[in-house]
Design a protein around this nucleic acid. Sequence first.
DNA 1: GTCATCATGTAAGCCGTTACATGATTGC
DNA 2: GCAATCATGTAACGGCTTACATGATGAC
Lengths: 205, 205
Amino acid sequence: MIDLAILGLLTEQELHGYELKKRLGELLSSRTAVSFGSLYPALARLEKQGCVKAVEERTTVPGAPMSGSLAGELAAFRARVRETGLGKATGRGKKVYGITERGRERLLELLSDPDVSDDRAFTLRVAFAPLLPESARLELFERRRTELLSRRDDLRRREHGRSRTHAYLGALLDRDAENLAHDLAWLDRLIDAERQAAQEQELPT
Amino acid sequence: MIDLAILGLLTEQELHGYELKKRLGELLSSRTAVSFGSLYPALARLEKQGCVKAVEERTTVPGAPMSGSLAGELAAFRARVRETGLGKATGRGKKVYGITERGRERLLELLSDPDVSDDRAFTLRVAFAPLLPESARLELFERRRTELLSRRDDLRRREHGRSRTHAYLGALLDRDAENLAHDLAWLDRLIDAERQAAQEQELPT
DNA sequence: GTCATCATGTAAGCCGTTACATGATTGC
DNA sequence: GCAATCATGTAACGGCTTACATGATGAC
């Protein structure tokens, strides 16, 4: 889930962790946003796997023209030494990540996963749908459609099992059924639009 | 979450773990059902807290109905604890749980929690809404309404932030907005029905 | 007698959270 | 120089899942 989000966002542009989190809060609802406590470890993991790489660290001395102060530069140098290695304990500084070829492959893998039962993950996958080839995109949508249909069957089976239950349970069942129907309609519109776009591309003008 | 489900189901009738799980699968969607790995530990925890108690064990000696005791229930409870505690190593058999007074209090507490941001929990709370007094029930719904309204504001803020984004992101935003509107409409119907029922009760005939 | 189902539980692990600790940059 | 924000990370913990281990009951 979080890997998908990170890799997807990094295909658009290189980002550092903090900004990544902000972008995620915009992309999904802020309620769905991930926390630092899972974001940074995830980034570290992805880096170890070779899916992303740090492309820049800001704290490293830029031009450093100013000064005239030897002490200042020296301090900066020491700080840098502490960061880059050795110390290891206090390596701070803005780390800008970029996606690697390996990461792109991994992302496609995640986007093509046949399992479409995770709602949040599906939302993310739609958000990054442009990264998929036309056919895979349609397959994703169709699979999701099948999933929703099976949920509807489930729901109907439950509806039959209902009997002398109170009004609130009935209301909940109604809500679920309506939500499902609604979601299906939305998906169908998406699929229609997709097919139409595909046709228009086949016979240009 | 799981406590709420367990306590709620046990107010209707005494059940053992396995059956509890089945009932949960019916009450909520089967996708939402909890697993044994979380159900049994939860039952054990609730028992330790005194919110539920084992009222019957099939394999262990069924006798000892005792009675005649002043604090009948309490004594029976202690006896059962002694029974169940001893075996431990090979204590298998159907354990039927019932809710205690303490458990009822806890359930009301859970149902009255001001936090209505958890969707799954809210669904459960609606399912057990009849256990709440009229006023608390309305308060629950109203609070949820406020929650949904604030989500809608959130969404609108995000919609304004959108610009040259691709069609899929737009579709996702649309979907979220529609889902929210739909959910709000459902809630409003629920609230209306509630108010009407309250009025009818006030002026009978 | 053996297989499916009922029934209870434990252990390992995943995925995420909050709280904490640290430090750099910027604006006033 | 001091606060707010930016920025990165660790530690502890929570809740739930899967896989495993165990045993009882009933059908055939």
